[in-house]
């Protein structure tokens, strides 16, 4: 992979990191409405998977969607503006942090329900393939907590039965809000997919290149065979579930950050000067986007 490609991936990781940090940092000022769920620590999942997309592919994300939106190509200012409830927001301020739609990117905040919808989208893309003249696929992002919802398994069943071209990506950050996975998930996570005849690949990694390589291979299979695949990304959440609700011991969180930082892992592949330049560029972009959004008007009904 070229140095330019490395730089691009780092830029995408860095954009998510700085955006999410700005959200948490500014939240107490009262400029954002509602709540938020940041994807700090999980940046490599969004960038690794979504950097493999082709034009026309569809993404359905969940409550923790900022990173996916930005990795998909979404605009920093529009996302800030959406969180600030401004007319220039991704959805004009109607949706807020969890409810985004732009181009072929969608998200919703209720657990599980997006899984049949993403499956239906994949089936629609398959039906409309000749009309659209492309074999588009769908990527659906689930969390480990989502696996408690029954409709997920209805969806896996029908996705396998009917050959939906969809990649289910489970971001297992080992904690659902405050509940550790071992208190909520019986048996083997991959086996839940394999039981429906959906091949599952599990990765223990925060390395964007490793995730990207795995996702690219699976997406090729989904596209070629029009069959579902699952990618289990065992990952780490650096921040709280939403804002101030992290119940994990601080030293454990510090250890996680020290050992599993996707920016650190990938940043080592960059020339130090290039890396510094990207970090400066992203800092400026995020600051400018925040200021522009903060000056944007509120919508009217």
């Amino acid at each position: 992979m070229s140095q330019t490609a490395h730089n691009e991936l780092y830029l995408a990781l860095c954009r998510i990191r700085r955006f999410e940090e700005a959200v948490l940092e500014k939240f107490s000022s009262g400029i954002f409405f509602g709540t938020t769920h940041t994807s700090l620590g999980q940046e490599a999942n969004a960038v690794g998977v979504l950097s493999c997309l082709q034009a026309g592919d569809v993404v359905f994300s969940n409550h923790r969607c900022h990173g996916h939106f930005l990795a998909y190509g979404g605009d920093l200012r529009a996302l800030f503006a959406e969180l600030m409830g401004r007319a220039t927001g991704v959805c004009g301020g109607r949706g807020g942090s969890q409810h985004l739609h732009w181009c072929n990117f969608y998200s919703n905040g209720v657990q599980g329900g997006i899984v049949p919808i993403a499956t239906g989208m994949a089936l629609a893309e398959k039906q409309l393939q000749s009309e659209r003249q492309s074999a588009s696929v769908v990527v659906a992002f689930l969390g480990d907590g989502t696996l408690g919802e029954g409709v997920v398994y209805e969806s896996l069943n029908m996705a396998a039965l009917w050959g939906a071209p969809i990649l289910f990506v489970v971001e297992n950050n080992r904690i659902a809000q405050t509940t550790p996975t071992q208190l909520a998930l019986a048996g083997d996570l991959s086996a839940r997919f394999e039981a429906f005849g959906i091949p599952a690949l599990a990765l223990e990694s925060s390395d964007v290149l490793e995730i990207r390589t795995a996702a690219a291979a699976l997406l090729d299979q989904v596209r070629a065979e029009a069959r579902p695949r699952a990618l289990i990304l065992n990952t780490w959440r650096f921040g709280p579930h939403s804002k101030g609700d992290d119940t994990r011991p601080p030293d454990l969180v510090a250890q996680i950050k020290d050992q599993h930082d996707p920016l650190f892992i990938h940043g080592q592949r960059l020339e130090p000067a290039a890396r510094a330049a990207i970090e400066t560029q992203v800092q400026e972009e995020v600051t400018a986007a925040f200021q522009q959004a903060a000056a944007d008007p509120f919508p009217i009904l």
Binding site: M121, E154, S155, M158
Partner: peptide
């Protein structure tokens, strides 16, 4: 599941 799948089909 079937209603959700139909929602996805309708959106696309």
């Amino acid at each position: 599941g079937m209603v959700g799948i139909a929602v996805g089909m309708a959106l696309r």
